[in-house]
């Protein structure tokens, strides 16, 4: 199976590096297609991207070559220092074009340049994708793809039905992340679309967050003004029911 010339020998022994780039690329692609969580998809995207960058960088490798920084004997500044250290006019005359025999001593710098900027732009675009994920979570309360599709479908059917009755978006059985207060939220707040959060909010905040002192002193009918004046620094207020239906 691994004798010379066979396809397995060519792929798994002589060109093992390409085989592994392909495997990494496929892992990333598979994660982008099949993973359910959007963050996992983004990690898959990064793996995909890194595999391609790895491929490009490995193209520039030369056997027996050093890094693409001039050695002292080829360094333009080094040669001036020996030539003449006093006259700055001679600076430009010291350097010579590298002879063709010395070129294979250095790794190909071009792939490095192309990929260096790609890495930095990659993290910027990763941040952009993560911010879109945060917005999705803000709107739908989940970053799992199946739950997201279910909610979108629900919303579409509601729009297509044309009924005026507004159903809360989050009232889905699939939303397991909430508390007991969350599942009932839609029914109770459907009629009262006022700006007054009900005591339910307090209940939710107690159940979800480890509240500290100020939360317990919170008055029963807390509203926004109270929120601002509260001396709470690190406590997160819980979900407001009314915004689930906007």
């Amino acid at each position: 199976m691994f004798e010379d010339g066979s396809i397995f020998n060519q792929l798994l022994v002589e060109r093992l590096n390409y085989f592994i780039y392909v495997v990494l690329l496929l892992i990333g692609l598979w994660a982008m297609i099949a993973k359910n969580n959007l963050i996992k998809k983004l990690i898959g995207m990064s793996i995909f991207q890194t595999a391609i960058i790895l491929f490009y960088v490995s193209i520039g490798v030369k056997e027996g070559a050093t890094i693409p920084i001039y050695l002292p004997e080829h360094d333009p500044h080094g040669s001036h220092a020996q030539l003449d250290s006093n006259q700055t006019d001679l600076l430009s005359h010291g350097a010579k074009v590298l002879e063709a025999s010395a070129v294979p001593n250095y790794t190909n710098p071009l792939p490095h340049v192309l990929m260096l900027t790609a890495i930095v732009v990659g993290v910027a675009t990763l941040g952009l994708a993560l911010s879109v994920c945060l917005r999705i979570y803000r709107g739908y309360g989940t970053v799992e793809e199946d739950e997201l599709l279910e909610k979108l479908e629900r919303e579409d059917s509601r729009k297509a039905g044309g009924s005026n009755k507004r159903r809360p978006r989050r009232r889905t059985p699939a939303n397991k992340g909430g508390t007991a207060g969350q599942s009932k939220r839609g029914q109770t707040t459907e009629k009262t679309k006022s700006d007054k959060p009900t005591p339910r909010r307090r209940q939710a905040s107690k159940s979800r967050t480890k509240t500290n002192g100020p939360a317990k002193e919170q008055p029963k009918s807390s509203n926004k003004e109270n929120d601002k004046t509260k001396p709470v620094k690190r406590r997160r207020p819980a979900k407001k029911p009314k915004e689930d239906e906007s």
Binding site: I39, L42, I43, S46, T50, I53, V57, S58, G60, V61, A65, T66, I67, P68, I69, T107, P111, H112, M115, L116, I119, V120, G122, V123, L126, G127, L130
Partner: peptide
Amino acid sequence: EMGAVDVAFTEATVGAGVSTVVL
């Protein structure tokens, strides 16, 4: 190891540093 020192440096700061923090 491949001799791409600049790329390695960038990956060490960006990939292992900032992108983890951002994630």
